[in-house]
Design a binder for these strands. Structure first.
Length: 470
RNA sequence: UCCCCAGUAGCUCAGUUGGCAGAGCAGGUGGCUGUUAACCACCGCGUCCGUGGUUCGAGUCCGCGCUGGGGAGCCA
């Protein structure tokens, strides 16, 4: 499309991804990226240039005699270059296309201290150089997939007429049972000597306690009761001292909230979302996913295929308890009605008993938060969790308690001050309707799709207890 | 926060019942080749995580600490 002159003049770069998709031989192109490896022959060198647009690198042939290729043999892994030349079919095995270099421009040579080598590194090592790991095949692929999945989240909801709501990051709702909060304050350390605890809050920026959000749910509910179907998709913060491979202090959560929606439709939507995200990745990230199929988890193709093609198992909490009691498997924690399902219970259901995602619903009211709708049996609430093999809980949701008197009773039961939630309770005073929603842990979703087993490896720069570098 | 495991070269790891510290890869030099985790030859590479102790002698055994990993809890 661009004339050679135009490409030269503007130095416009061609992305390797689009060259590989639409290339025509003979075309003069310009790529800009980072040297992955150099292999020398007697009279010329092979370069592999990666620009991050896709997993594949572009092979470059640099003739040592060509005036524009001076100093090719100085190029090291990690160096940044621009290469202009003719695109042609590669006579070698392993790649369809290559560029016969006419001009190689060096942005910077990477010295030999560059930590990434032409070999496999451990995930633990790469976490310590998280600023460089997106330059590896695996992490480049993971973060391209993460990007595609976020796009797919928006497309899923937009196609169904949901409205995207930006709920606040800083909130004043003190507690809601979703974990420890990160406090937000504008006071300086010295100021705390001037005030006692209560007056410190009054003299702080907002005049009361503030914290980073642990969930946009309550605010999303208010918008659902105005706009119908809404969702949030943003960062979420938990100050829990959790040290596991599936918890982070800062993570992204997708939280749809649907008016005129009961628990079974809520579960339908959750199942459809998970299926849509997996399908989207299979259709749009084939090359990147193949890396994970081959090098990360060989059983991944089967797992993803099962998720897309088979209905999720659905089982009530009471049924799940009976089933676990009857199983011959010995569990680390005992199972009894009234106690929450533990990690090994959930894994047994998803991985061994059903072999597919499981939705467990109608949990005992005593172990669930105040906003979940009390069922007619008075003992359970209309809650649901989606449990997937390998990860455990990926979604938690419920039908919300829309009856004012019951909601107030539940708040009293769980020790909450109703006056703090006057705005939330107003939604049950003025045109309250049945409604439902859930929260999807976005990183856990990326883990599911890629087979990556540690949440720190699907976050660009993970925040976990004691770790805030980068 | 609790339980378990690990920490040795730039990276991945071996190191026997306690006896002078090893390999592969990466890096350097030379050679060869339309190569592709290139190949062949040669070369260098150490606070054995820190600290205290046991011992004639500690990478190895013991205490404490730090860092990393796995599991549990909390949850998404």
């Amino acid at each position: 499309m661009n004339s050679p002159e135009f490409a030269e003049m503007t130095s416009k770069r061609n992305k390797i991804r689009s060259l590989l998709q639409t290339a025509e031989p003979g075309q003069r192109v310009c790529i800009k990226g980072w040297v992955r490896t150099r292999r020398d022959s007697k009279t010329f060198s092979f370069l592999e240039i990666n620009d991050g647009s896709c997993l594949a690198s572009m092979q470059v042939i640099a003739d040592h005699a060509a005036p524009g290729c001076d100093g090719v043999t100085e190029l090291t892994t990690g160096s940044a270059v621009a290469v202009t030349g003719a695109l042609r079919h590669s006579p070698g095995k392993g790649q369809k296309w290559e560029i016969l270099a006419e001009q190689i421009t060096v942005y910077q040579i990477a010295p030999e201290t560059y930590p990434l080598q032409k070999k496999r590194h451990s995930d633990e090592f790469l976490r310590r150089i998280a600023h460089l790991r997106p330059r590896t095949n695996k992490y480049g692929a993971a973060f391209r997939i993460r990007s595609e999945l976020s796009f797919a989240v928006h497309r899923f909801f937009r196609d169904q007429g949901f409205i995207y709501v930006h709920t606040p990051i800083i909130t004043g709702s003190d507690c809601e049972g979703a974990g420890e909060l990160f406090r937000v304050t504008a006071l300086r350390p010295g100021d705390f000597r001037k005030f006692d605890d209560a007056s410190a809050d009054q003299n702080d920026f907002f005049g009361k306690k503030a914290a980073l959000t642990v969930s946009g749910q309550l605010e999303a509910e208010l918008f659902a009761l105005a706009l119908g179907d809404v969702y949030t998709f943003g960062p979420t913060f938990r100050a829990e001292n959790s040290n596991t491979r599936r918890h982070a202090a800062e993570f992204w959560m997708v939280e749809p909230e649907m008016a005129f929606c009961e628990l079974s439709e809520n579960m339908d939507n959750a199942e459809a979302l998970v299926k849509h995200l997996v399908s989207h990745a299979l259709e749009n990230c084939a090359e990147d996913l193949d890396l994970f199929f081959r090098f990360v988890d060989k059983s991944l193709p089967g797992i993803l295929e099962t998720i897309v093609s088979r209905p999720f198992a659905r089982i009530s909490y009471a049924e799940a308890v009976d089933l676990l009691k009857q199983s011959e498997k010995r569990f680390e924690h005992e199972i009894a009605f009234g106690y929450d399902l533990q990690a090994d219970h959930e894994r047994f259901l998803a991985e061994q008993y059903f072999g597919c995602p499981v939705m467990v619903y109608d949990y005992p009211r005593r172990i669930k938060p105040f906003y979940m709708r009390v069922n007619d049996d008075e003992q359970t609430v209309a809650a649901m969790d989606v449990i997937v093999p390998g990860i455990g809980e990926i979604i938690g949701g419920s039908q919300r308690e829309e009856r004012l008197d019951m909601l107030e009773a539940r708040m009293a039961e769980t020790g909450l001050d109703t006056s703090e939630y006057w705005w939330y309770l107003d939604s049950r005073r003025y045109g309250s309707v049945p409604h439902s929603g859930y929260g999807l842990g976005f990183e856990r979703m990326v883990m599911l799709v890629t087979g990556i087993t540690n949440i720190r490896d699907v976050l660009p720069f993970a925040r976990t207890p004691g770790n805030i570098d980068f």
